[in-house]
């Protein structure tokens, strides 16, 4: 057992799967000798030169060729350097990767994991800070995972790689090196589609995922409320059951995410709460999210992020009734 950061945990999961399964292939820009711009693939090319491939600089080229590889028996793990560059390949993701299982009536699985760092808060450049998960939630046929801790990152990534369906694996850039925790050396998996109750509580339910979850935890700790904190971990499919069971108990809910507000994950979660436990609610659910704007540059990004101040405001609001 060693203390690892999220980026080291990602590396450990990739290394584990490369060693275990000869059909695992990594591809992307600068992921080979350079080890990736965040070093997520550091050292892997040295050990697996034929299966850790530096590609030409074309996100659409990476994802479209990866699709062909996946259909032909390769468990391919392409990296897109920043999630803001996911939209060149989007036609392939939407029309082929997410849809080929349906289009071939189950003949072909597309077992690929698209890894990409997402989110604001590291003073990066324009279009290097997006949270685009809602774009993928309507891309039916995909799964999508967003870890918030090193332990989860390793277990979820191994599960994603072994999953027969295509998975978008969003890595929280802001947390890449922000926290360390004990991560077992040996392999383990965390099932996709299952949320994690980070902390039990009785006053209210806080639902979040990825980097925003850390802000939510900090915000809760500054109040005296007994909050049940749920880390979604998988945003497609959403673990509705865990959320509903919690809201039935607490009657109050705050959802926190970095992505824009309208039609974001929070909107869907509130819709499910309304459908399944509306009469258990003691106050209207709140959402603390990014705005329906472009992510601002570094000087203003902390206003955009669902910071502790904004989260506490919503916690107080749901508790006021």
């Amino acid at each position: 057992m060693a203390k690892l950061t999220i980026v080291q945990a990602v590396n450990a999961a990739l290394r584990n799967e490369l060693a275990k399964d000869k059909s695992v292939v990594l591809m992307g820009e600068d992921i080979g000798v350079n080890g990736g711009v965040f070093r997520a693939t550091d050292g892997l090319h040295a050990d697996y030169p034929d299966r850790v491939l530096d590609t030409p600089l074309s996100e659409a080229g990476i994802i479209s060729t990866a699709f062909g590889m996946a259909v032909n028996g390769i468990k391919v793990i392409p990296e897109i350097q920043f999630s803001g560059f996911m939209y060149g390949p989007m036609e392939h993701i939407y029309a082929h990767i997410a849809r080929t299982r349906t289009r071939s009536r189950g003949r072909f699985n597309v077992p690929m994991v698209i890894r990409t760092p997402y989110g604001a808060g590291i003073r990066a450049l324009d279009l290097h800070c997006e949270s685009g998960e809602a774009i993928f939630t309507q891309t039916t046929g995909l799964k999508m995972v967003i870890p918030s801790s090193p332990y989860d990152a390793k277990g979820l990534l191994i599960s994603a790689i072994r999953d027969p369906d295509p998975v978008i694996f969003y890595e929280p850039m802001r947390l890449y090196r922000a926290l360390k925790e004990e991560v077992p050396d040996e392999e383990y998996t965390i099932p996709l589609g299952e949320a994690n109750v980070v902390q039990e509580g009785s006053d209210l339910t806080v639902v979040s995922y990825g980097a925003a979850l850390r802000d939510a935890i900090k915000a809760v700790s500054q109040t005296g409320y007994s909050a049940e904190i749920i880390d979604l971990r998988t945003v497609i499919p959403i673990d509705t059951e865990t959320i509903i069971n919690s809201v039935k108990k607490t009657g109050r809910c705050v959802i926190v995410h970095e992505a824009p507000k309208s039609c974001g994950l929070a909107a869907e979660i509130i819709a499910r709460i309304n459908e399944k436990c509306f009469f258990n609610l003691k106050s209207p659910p709140e959402r603390v999210t990014g705005f329906d704007t472009a992510v601002p540059f570094a000087k203003l990004e902390n206003y955009y992020l669902p910071n502790e101040k904004r989260i506490i405001k919503s916690l107080n609001k749901v508790m006021a009734q």
Binding site: S64, T65, G68, E91
Partner: peptide, 17 residues
Amino acid sequence: GTQSPHVTGLAMASKIK
């Protein structure tokens, strides 16, 4: 036109395998 790079990918997989 989307299918052309899929051909390349299928072929890359066969080469690797």
